[in-house]
């Protein structure tokens, strides 16, 4: 299963980006192989309507869960429609590596 994490740069030490849709990178974690892949967010600098585009983009990556700091009302509706589970972690100190450990240790 693949999990997308919105992060501020492309390393395992990267922290959660506080604004989901405008994060710099998405870390795509494969929970089976523990592989992490960083994909640049193509919509980070667009002015409006990014919720729809970002959720579509993530859906096309075959992701079934998404981790972010918090989610707005509109983007939640978009992800609901793709049946992608949202996980809001209000802890800006956790890094990608922490999340990989948490996701794979159970």
């Amino acid at each position: 299963m693949k999990v997308a994490i919105s992060v501020n740069h492309n390393s395992l030490h990267a922290k959660l980006d506080l604004h989901f849709g405008r994060c710099a990178y998405f870390a795509i974690v494969d929970t089976r192989t523990k592989k992490v892949e960083f994909i640049e967010n193509p919509y980070q600098n667009q002015e409006s309507g990014i919720g729809k585009k970002v959720s579509q983009f993530i859906n096309n990556l075959d992701v079934s869960r998404v981790i972010g700091f918090q989610f707005g009302v509109k983007i939640k509706e978009e992800f609901d429609q793709y049946k992608i589970q949202l996980i809001a972690v209000q802890d800006a100190d956790k890094s990608v590596q922490d999340f990989v450990n948490m996701l794979t240790n159970h």
Binding site: K76, K83, I84, Q85, L86, A88, V89
Partner: peptide
């Protein structure tokens, strides 16, 4: 345990 919030779209 970890304090995360999550939803259940399915």
């Amino acid at each position: 345990t970890c304090g995360a919030f999550f939803n259940n779209p399915g």
